[in-house]
Nucleic acid binder design. Sequence first.
DNA 1: ATGGTGTTTATAAACAAACCC
DNA 2: AAGGGTTTGTTTATAAACACC
Lengths: 602, 602
Amino acid sequence: MRESPRRPIILKRRKLPFLKSESDLGCDEADGTRCKTTSTQSTARSFPDGIRVMDHPTMPDTQVVVIPKSADLQSVISVLTAKGKECGPQGRNKFILLSGDTSLEESKTLGCFSTELGSELGKVKKESECFPLDDSLTNIQWLGKMSSDGLGSEKCPNKDNPNDSQQQSKGPEKENDPHSERPPYSYMAMIQFAINSKNNRHMTLKEIYNWIEDHFPYFRDVAKPGWKNSIRHNLSLHDMFIRETSPDGKISYWTIRPEANRCLTLDQVYKQKRGAPELKKAIPALGGTERKMKPLLPRTDSYLVPIQLPLGQSLFLPTSSPVSLSTPPQTQNSSTPSSSKRVRIAPKVSQSDLSSVLLCKPASQEIKEEPVFQPVTSSEAPPPKSRRTDNSSSRRKQRLVLPATEEPVLLYPDSTLFDSGVISDISTFQDTREADPKPELDSPNREYSFKTPIKSSHPSSSTPSKLPTVTLEPWRITPVGKGGVLDFSPIRTPTGPHVTPQRNQHTSLSFTSTPFKELPLFNSPRELLTCSRSSPKRSAPACSRELLQVGAANRSLTEGLVLDTMNDSLSKILVDISFSGLEDEDLGMGNISWSQFIPELK
Amino acid sequence: MRESPRRPIILKRRKLPFLKSESDLGCDEADGTRCKTTSTQSTARSFPDGIRVMDHPTMPDTQVVVIPKSADLQSVISVLTAKGKECGPQGRNKFILLSGDTSLEESKTLGCFSTELGSELGKVKKESECFPLDDSLTNIQWLGKMSSDGLGSEKCPNKDNPNDSQQQSKGPEKENDPHSERPPYSYMAMIQFAINSKNNRHMTLKEIYNWIEDHFPYFRDVAKPGWKNSIRHNLSLHDMFIRETSPDGKISYWTIRPEANRCLTLDQVYKQKRGAPELKKAIPALGGTERKMKPLLPRTDSYLVPIQLPLGQSLFLPTSSPVSLSTPPQTQNSSTPSSSKRVRIAPKVSQSDLSSVLLCKPASQEIKEEPVFQPVTSSEAPPPKSRRTDNSSSRRKQRLVLPATEEPVLLYPDSTLFDSGVISDISTFQDTREADPKPELDSPNREYSFKTPIKSSHPSSSTPSKLPTVTLEPWRITPVGKGGVLDFSPIRTPTGPHVTPQRNQHTSLSFTSTPFKELPLFNSPRELLTCSRSSPKRSAPACSRELLQVGAANRSLTEGLVLDTMNDSLSKILVDISFSGLEDEDLGMGNISWSQFIPELK
DNA sequence: ATGGTGTTTATAAACAAACCC
DNA sequence: AAGGGTTTGTTTATAAACACC
Ligand SMILES: [Mg+2]
Ligand SMILES: [Mg+2]
């Protein structure tokens, strides 16, 4: 099984079992080149299962935990517990979890896309099937420039052209790179970038437009004007974006629901340059099928690791320092088959809260309290590896890794962790004036790329598939038996051992009981993160806590959920863990497994 | 001002001030023919302001309140209060509110689209600007066949072809009407119809497909296969649809979040037949612009009238009796201009909870408790009419009718009203087997109507507008100065007196306080109804209650919100009102206005 | 291997309502 | 003050990519 010629499987859009220390957990499933879990030279301390922990370069209270693909969740927990005890409540009690065999130094494991953390040397190009060469994963500044933070350090002063100056410091002028490719970020991501770039974390629509145009010339130059429609659509559609009104009611500001805000900025996100777009036509070969997505934002809608977080401390990613914005469009890294006319659909992106993960404290207000960590000593589950013959493989759609028998035993944040609230200074309130209303005069070089699905063939499949239409690469047209739809589907890795933990027995009673009560349990990854929408009254992190009362127990227990970023190259797991009382006594829930509380499980 | 030749303004997609007893509230704004508030002969009792109240024909505990457009909300409240007292807690304590000058008998007010309740004679066709002739508003059975309820009365037995037989009892065979036009319902609506047609209120995807195909031959015959993609998309997108898993984990069932379920069925919804479609082309004139929507479902995302609802009683619309399903596709009423190739976008539809509105009790379980109604005697606001020169006209986008000075003084349900929970019988559980997996063989007459937006002209507007492409009516091409986009924008009724109650001052402090707390206040109509997503623990109606703590007061108070259905012809307001203690004592909040609690308001 | 099911993103559109001039 | 055009906001429809079963 599993050699999809494309991308490492762990970086593909799939669930990360994270409990299986299977070999197929990691990248072995992805490319032919098995990344040998090369525990590359890492200056950081190593822990069991190859887990490495190192201090965050800039954040004093944060450590970075690199978790190999083969690591067991229990090992992760024990490492976190140990580190938490070691550092004590005053020490670095926040952790950023990274998956993959990465090292902060130079990384670049075999063919496996390793995550370059501090340097920009790493390159990842997943067109060719894991040919480790010409990868062009550019700088991962998400660790780099989290220094310029606090209040007002970056006011993004006048919106007229504040960021231009910053960009120029980094790369070529925006006029210089005329090819301005479409950035690999979804609209939702870009809107987050834009809003989070402001210190007060709200923007008018026009400011969002301008920010995006300034940072992604593609939209200013080549995109059809409909992209603004899409921006508005995204603002309305996603409830993570909420509209606020100025006191005088004259202006609408778009903000990000604070619980949902991961404070993603352009810097923090890893940006990938693609090379010359024309080569895409020239090189039709290789399994790249060209419909793959460029790496996008790390997806928050993935697995969460809810962890005991008794106090309102949260990791603060200081909002993009406007300086040294590695403006995405420059450094075109030679031939990249990416920029075809077919608009790629950006993979899922940081949608909602990640309640306990990376909550940003917008400014000031340090309410550091004593964190308490529940020592998780689950002596339960670490279940057999690769028991894929498990017949109870619930034959249903994408379920999350769920509280099956191999539950990670994790406690859940019990306290309000967003108490500090986002107090955006009203003083910086009127900097939203006008934002140069130049009407943009109709995009000079509008090329009418018919992105509208042509679909000239007869429709047979219910989910329409886009034909290559232009430059139809014949080698690619694997004539499908049924409808003539060309199927470019990658070689599906048959899920591997990746035993889908069937947790769905719980619905047995849900059919009879009040259905609402059993709604959670996270049928979809998004539900996992978007559920804290209501209950406006409590300013506390309504989301994550509520998720936990799902099962039978009303305790602040949650299923073990692991964020997998489903990013193409870098999967970041950002977990905010607080350690307060390290005495292992708190509730004695250290080794509680889900099966105790959810009888339907196992 | 305001004679948009199209539709009565009250039926357009706009907010219903409902407090204004302005003349422009109703249809006067719509068509030239001012509907003179003809209090048509109605057999029901009349109340102040022309409000009529009549018993529901089939539901013993329900009355129907027809509210003229000119009625004041306070009048409505007093009528409801009076009726509630009159009937007592054991009487008909549920009300269905209908707007418009309708009568249950024959109605058909002047040019105004009146709602036919029991009969099918009324016809509404809004192509020609309110020419009251050839309207073809068909039967409104939503009041008719809510008798077959309870448990198992309509099992929709085997899904193979259960409804066919019923359809035949009503109209021509589905083979008989080959033209099978696209139904005027959105996907979301149709999915609701489908799921609610089942007694246990869940369906597999395939069953949903089949139900829709059976009831709307359009999808079986002419629609491209992509419609199934859209169905799935809608199921995933809208959180009102949740997926449950059978106990064995083998089958996924789609259900409707019970709090969000209005139990809409095809019967309950008013269906409109359109005449000859060619007439649309033949009569390009008149402001009809052909882009108007057919009347759809009553929109729930509109204004709610939260009313004191202390007990868990909720109106139960018994799920469509499968018998005598007025199958939409028959009775083709001659030339309907609707079936153009351009896919119309169905107007907003019953999205989410309407928490206190029409909660359906799926089966059994009568937990009738003593209802309490707070007599609303607001002596406050009914503010000056058409004070549009009001300078504080909050210069912002669609805001809801909000707790401005003219707040309707309504109390909010304080008790959990969904305690009884939806207990779908598991006994009817296994009737979901297979659902005749005939693969539907690719839709014989697939006509490749290029619905894909052609948009051959150069894009200039950020929101793309569809050109007629075919049969371009030249009279319509009002050459816009800027981009060459043809603007078919209807004559915009300049908002009329319709004083937008600016309530947005409340955000003044929201900028400084924890932003989450002031999230509600309903920036969008959907938020109003979708906010009860989280908090799975409490099976009570989490939504509506939480909405209320928005303002300064933490009381179970809410802004007066009036559901306007934004339907083209019939605006139904379904309110579930329970009267328990009619002693006017409950909290003494009878005449509390918002300005008391929200200082920012006025 | 393939198709069905589910989840998300992208885009076009229709419209409403607020703004602007 | 009215009116027409634009901007902003909301929602639906469709296509598509892709994951997982
Ligand atoms: Mg939004
Ligand atoms: Mg859903």
